[in-house]
Deep mutational scan, measured.
Amino acid sequence: EAHAAIDTFTKYLDIDEDFATVLVEEGFSTLEELAYVPMKELLEIEGLDEPTVEALRERAKNALATIAQ
Rank of each mutant, 00 (worst) to 15 (best):
T52M: 14
T10W: 04
T8K: 12
L23V: 02
D16A: 09
M39P: 08
L34S: 00
A55H: 09
E58T: 10
E58I: 07
K61P: 00
L31T: 01
E32W: 10
E41M: 06
V53E: 01
N62E: 13
P51R: 14
L56F: 02
K61D: 03
A55R: 15
G47A: 07
A55N: 11
S29Q: 12
D16W: 06
Y12R: 00
F28D: 00
D7F: 04
E17R: 15
Y36Q: 11
I45A: 03
L64V: 07
L48P: 03
G27P: 00
T10V: 15
Q69P: 08
P51Y: 11
I15D: 01
G27T: 00
T30L: 06
Y36E: 11
P38M: 03
V24D: 01
E1Y: 02
R59D: 04
P38W: 02
S29M: 15
E25S: 14
V53T: 06
A65C: 08
L48V: 10
E25N: 15
F9M: 05
I15N: 00
F9T: 01
E46S: 14
R57K: 14
L42R: 04
R57E: 02
E50P: 12
L31S: 00
D49A: 05
Q69E: 15
A5L: 11
L34A: 00
I15E: 01
V37E: 08
A68Q: 13
A4M: 11
D18W: 14
A35T: 07
L23E: 00
E58W: 02
E54D: 09
I67P: 04
T21Q: 12
A55K: 13
E44K: 15
M39Q: 08
H3K: 15
L56I: 12
L31P: 01
D16N: 09
A2V: 11
E54C: 08
L13Q: 00
D7K: 08
R57G: 04
A35D: 02
E1Q: 12
A20R: 01
K11N: 07
L56A: 02
E58H: 06
G47R: 08
A5S: 11
G27I: 02
P51G: 12
D49M: 05
K40C: 09
S29D: 07
T66E: 15
T66I: 14
A5G: 05
A63V: 10
M39W: 04
A60R: 00
T66L: 14
V22M: 15
E46M: 11
T30P: 01
V22R: 15
F28Q: 01
E58S: 06
K40P: 08
D7S: 06
L48C: 04
A4S: 13
D18G: 15
V24K: 05
I6H: 04
A68M: 08
L64N: 02
F28T: 01
E33R: 06
L56R: 00
V53Y: 07
K11L: 06
E32V: 09
F9H: 01
E32T: 07
E50W: 12
A20V: 03
V37Y: 09
D16L: 07
A65S: 11
L13E: 02
L64R: 02
Q69N: 13
E33G: 06
K61M: 09
P38T: 09
I45K: 03
A2G: 12
E1S: 13
T21W: 15
A65V: 14
E46F: 15
E26R: 15
M39Y: 06
R57D: 01
A2E: 12
T21Y: 11
P38L: 04
A68L: 08
A4Q: 13
E44T: 13
F28C: 02
T8F: 11
K61T: 06
V24H: 07
V24Y: 14
M39T: 12
I6N: 03
A4R: 12
V24C: 05
I15M: 06
Y12N: 04
P38V: 04
D49V: 04
I67N: 06
V53W: 13
D49C: 05
G47I: 07
D49L: 05
E44G: 14
L64C: 03
N62A: 15
Y12C: 05
L42S: 03
L13A: 00
H3D: 10
L64E: 02
A60G: 01
L23C: 01
R57Q: 15
E17T: 10
F9P: 01
K11E: 07
E50H: 11
E41K: 13
P38K: 05
K11I: 05
L64M: 08
D14R: 03
A65R: 07
R59I: 05
L13T: 01
A20L: 03
V37S: 12
H3I: 14
E33M: 08
E33V: 05
K61H: 09
A60L: 06
A2Q: 15
L48S: 03
E46L: 14
N62Q: 12
L56Y: 00
P38Q: 07
F19Y: 07
A2T: 13
A60I: 08
A63H: 05
L43E: 04
Y12T: 04
N62Y: 05
G27Q: 02
I67S: 05
